[in-house]
Amino acid sequence: MPTPQPDRPGAVLTVRELRKTFTLHTIDGRTVVSLDGVDLDVAAGEHVAVAGPSGAGKSSLLRCIHRSYLPDSGSVLLHTPDGPVELTALPDRALARLRGREIGYVSQFLTPPPRTGPLDVVAAAARRRGLAPAEARDAAAESLHRLGLDEALWDVDCGVLSGGERQRINLAAGTVRPPRLLLLDEPVSALDPRNRERALQLIASLTDQGVAVVAVFHDLDAMRQLATRVVQMTDARIVAEGPARDILGAVA
């Protein structure tokens, strides 16, 4: 178990005793425990990789932090210039605004608004982070360039694009005008080696800029390349934590 260090300098995220249980009312009301008391600290410029087998609760952890899952109990503190904010207790509207400004969430699959082009999707994300319309389009264009998305596709409906293209759009939207906290859930799973490398470079550069990253990768190389720290999850709990080579070496 990690030692809580809520007051260390540069703290961005402090998670304590986070629990999440699903009650499946449509299937005989059974319950599934997804997080069973998770603690996590992430500082600015830190890249924490969450490792573990499928079903260990890695994605649930990211979603409970983002609050697309509503945690049952526990604390998720985001440290902002205005002071710490308890995300689990934040009113919905305030959370929606805070998410737009401070938190990037990149899921494995892009679910963009239907019939919208990549440039619009990314520019909309940039606008939520506070950019004016014209600046937002410039930032979106830069971001898409950086991830190597063919300019001919920028105004094509995202729904017709390939999985790898969509994933890059998603990553561009999550990282444009970098947020304080970036949550990555398998962001490069569908990319070919060349684009994967571009994406990993982008993520690494964000960490260098001081973004706090919590990421789930299935691929160990990515974790070794990017993570400043790895937490190992099994059965809804964090069972080990440390530098990448220690943890991943132990797993391998």
Binding site: H25, T26, R63, R67, S68, Y69, L70, D92, L95
Partner: peptide, 15 residues
């Protein structure tokens, strides 16, 4: 039930 739309869609609580 009420909440953020993405949360209601991904993590609905009420049967």
């Amino acid at each position: 039930e009420s909440g953020l739309t993405d949360q209601l869609f991904r993590d609905p609580h009420h049967p």
